[in-house]
Simulated scan of single mutants.
Amino acid sequence: MNALQLEELPLAQAGDPASRVALVLHGGGGPRTVAPIVAHLGTTMHAVAPTHPGWEGTALPDSIASVSDLAAAYLADLAERGDRGVVLVGSSIGGWIALEMAQQATRVPRFEGVVGAVVVIDGVGVVVDGEPIADFFALDARGLAELAWHDPDRGYTDPATLTDQQRAMQASNGRTMARIAGAGMSDPALLGRLGALEAPTLVIWGASDRIATPAYGRALADVIPGARFAEIPAAGHLPHLENPDATWAALDPFLAGI
């Protein structure tokens, strides 16, 4: 029995449960950052967005100490549920989880057929020479907004306006992210494994992202067989929040063709 089950996690859902499943994987900012993706995909698919273990006050099992562990746990649950052809849509660290799931699915026989397609939105996780990921853990709120948003004023939240509970939750989420993603938010070996990916893949990137630059995103797409790359103008690390229309214009034709 898989130790991690989607039904036991806080779960946002949209769409017809009888439709094809889209597993939407959030990044460090938590589940609210992918809510527009869930709503959009729910018009044509069954979009399911779990809160990752350790985020938003949920328990983090001892068995999950890395992105690889979390990816394997999600894959095992999907396989046990009998889901096939699942579309993985991951934002930031969620993109890393999606890539790890996709490459594990090519190596583990019991996961064969579980992953049908991959959409990475400004994902981290790989190491690209000359394009380092910003040191997220060294950034204050203003610094994060400056790097992550095309319009930093829109993305900035003054910490003084947060409640003690909100600050505690942010700190807890950060500790979880550090535990499973590491200080560098990358796996040096991952890029070399992505050449084995078999699922159709779309890499979407905000043109103004300075957490991980568009050049980083293009390098990621270049190693995945047949992957498409779409750059979203007037958007940073979360293009589905800053420029949703352009994001859907890149996403929808890809999904229609798989």
Rank of each mutant, 00 (worst) to 15 (best):
H26A: 03
H26L: 07
H26V: 04
G28W: 11
P31T: 14
R32C: 00
V34H: 03
A35M: 12
I37M: 13
I37V: 15
H40S: 11
G42D: 09
T43C: 10
T43H: 15
T44D: 15
M45H: 15
H46R: 13
A47S: 10
P50K: 00
W55P: 00
T58H: 05
L60W: 03
V67N: 12
S68D: 14
A72Q: 10
A73V: 09
R84I: 03
V86L: 03
V86N: 02
V87C: 06
V89G: 04
I93A: 14
I93R: 13
G94S: 01
G94H: 02
I97E: 02
I97N: 01
A98T: 02
L99I: 07
E100T: 13
A102M: 05
Q103D: 08
Q103I: 12
A105P: 06
R107W: 09
G113F: 06
G116K: 11
V120N: 05
I121P: 00
G123W: 07
G125T: 08
V127H: 10
D129R: 13
D129M: 09
E131C: 02
D135V: 00
D140S: 11
A145I: 09
L147H: 10
H150V: 04
T161G: 01
L162Q: 13
Q165W: 09
Q165I: 09
